[in-house]
């Protein structure tokens, strides 16, 4: 079940993370406040027993962020005072899904390939073998003539870089690429993997 939840987050939450961060920045949160808030938001998702009730993930995500902000303001912790006036606005955003929001599997797969493609060379090779070709760490190490330790380090480094890209977002590049029909990818169940 944990896999299902991870898949839900990867598909329905992560694509909107950069947008939320941008909004939080405009709302006056500092960088570290934004990071804290995003981590807290994921923590709350983690604590959810299931995601089936979430029909509009993006709206859900913003709502969660808003709740966290409100709580923090109440506890007078972390959040700067300029934020307060913006919190209500966060509650009023229009979350009617746009065509771009509808999760197209192809777009998602393109996105994944794009993340891997964007890695520095050695990292990319490690990710290609491990995540695309499904090789184990040991097999990857052997194939690339690296030690397992290096493979593990490259894996951590690549994952960090990709997480940073998820935080930054680069929708333009992705959307342009999303038009290419032959993204390759893995199967997922139509509802929630």
């Amino acid at each position: 079940m944990h896999q299902e939840r991870l898949a839900f987050v990867g598909t329905h939450i992560m694509p909107h993370e950069a947008g939320l961060r941008q909004w939080l920045m405009r709302a006056g949160l500092s960088e570290s406040e934004r990071d804290d808030l995003v981590q807290e938001m994921y923590y709350r998702l983690l604590r959810q027993t299931g995601f089936r009730h979430i029909t509009n993930p993006r709206a859900y995500m913003y709502r969660t962020a808003r709740n966290i902000l409100l709580e923090q303001v109440r506890r007078n912790r972390v959040v700067s005072i300029t934020t307060v006036q913006n919190i209500d606005e966060l509650g009023m955003l229009d979350f009617t899904p746009s065509p771009e929001d509808t999760v197209s599997a192809r777009r998602e797969l393109t996105r994944v390939m794009d993340f891997i493609e964007g890695l520095p060379e050695r990292c990319r090779s490690v990710f290609a073998l491990r995540r695309i070709h499904g090789l184990s760490q040991a097999e990857t190490a052997q194939r690339l003539a690296l030690s397992e330790n290096v493979v593990e380090k490259e894996t951590a480094r690549g994952l960090s870089l990709i997480l940073a890209r998820i935080a930054e977002g680069d929708s333009d590049a992705l959307q342009a690429k999303a038009l290419t029909p032959l993204a390759t990818g893995q199967v997922k169940a139509g509802h929630v993997t």
């Binding site: 991870l6 598909t11 994921y42 995540r131």
Partner: peptide, 24 residues
């Protein structure tokens, strides 16, 4: 930490979707 770990796990799982296609 728990949120960040969950997020990293989700990203790792997402990358695994590239698997199983032809080339894989």
């Amino acid at each position: 930490h728990q949120g960040a770990y969950f997020r990293a796990q989700a990203a790792w799982a997402m990358l695994g979707r590239a698997r199983v296609m032809g080339a894989g």
